[in-house]
């Protein structure tokens, strides 16, 4: 009888072991490899970049996201690697300028540098105020640069608003107005100059000469 019990127990154990093996293999098969569509060498390079970010104390999620974005947009593998590498560089620069900040703020600041701002323009955002985030300011700043507002003008305007204590709504409103003006055909730099005068707070108008060869009613895009 004891022998029969032992045999039954053994059968159950073997069954459980088999199920575990099967479930493990199944789980491994179902766990999608996010970088699986990349060629091996590109994939390894990106994984090294992810590790570099971790070692440097930088968020690796933006790098992975950039790689996934490239895959989704069917970009060549080499372009994806380049884009991920550049993103890591922007994050490093932002960290160097701003010091220890929240990951989200760091990513937003990196995007500003990526859009064309000079790192030293970011230094004005280094003093932190508790409970205040500069993410919205950085987003609007990067958008202005992306839409063709000259870097110096955009940087000065955003920095002044920030130093004057503008809140997120002020930045959003400024963006909305400038974007509307640009859509109407106004020169991006001029659109910003016009709208910054209307912004609440003590922000002074930006006095930067419009670039030569540009008309006020001419769209930059």
């Amino acid at each position: 009888m004891t022998l029969a019990l032992l045999r039954r127990g053994l059968r159950i154990s073997l069954g459980v072991a088999g199920l575990l093996v099967a479930s493990t293999l199944s789980a491994a098969a179902q766990d999608p490899d996010p970088l699986g569509k990349l060629e091996q060498n590109n994939r390894v390079t990106i994984e090294l970049l992810l590790d570099s970010a971790k070692v440097a104390g930088l968020p690796s999620q933006p790098l992975l996201s950039k790689a996934l974005e490239g895959i989704a947009k069917k970009a060549p593998g080499r372009n994806i690697v380049d884009a991920v590498r550049k993103t890591l560089g922007y994050l490093r620069t932002a960290r160097t300028v701003l010091g220890t900040v929240d990951d989200q703020e760091l990513v937003a600041a990196a995007a500003v540098i990526e859009a064309g701002a000079k790192p030293n323009h970011l230094e004005q955002f280094r003093p932190r105020k508790k409970g205040r985030t500069d993410i919205e300011a950085f987003i609007v700043w990067a958008d202005f640069l992306q839409r063709g507002v000259p870097s110096e003008e955009a940087s000065t305007a955003i920095a002044r608003l920030w130093q004057d204590g503008a809140d997120d709504e002020t930045f959003r409103s400024l963006w909305s107005n400038v974007q509307a003006d640009i859509s109407q055909g106004l020169n991006p730099g001029t659109a910003l100059q016009n709208r910054i005068r209307e912004a609440p707070g003590r922000a002074s108008p930006v006095t930067v000469k419009p670039p030569e060869g540009q008309q006020e009613n001419q769209s930059s895009r």
């Binding site: 947009k73 970009a75 372009n79 884009a83 609007v140 990067a142 992306q146």
Partner: peptide
């Protein structure tokens, strides 16, 4: 708002 050029053409 727009993000910086993604490097992939979009």
């Amino acid at each position: 708002p727009l993000a910086p050029d993604d490097g992939f053409g979009h």
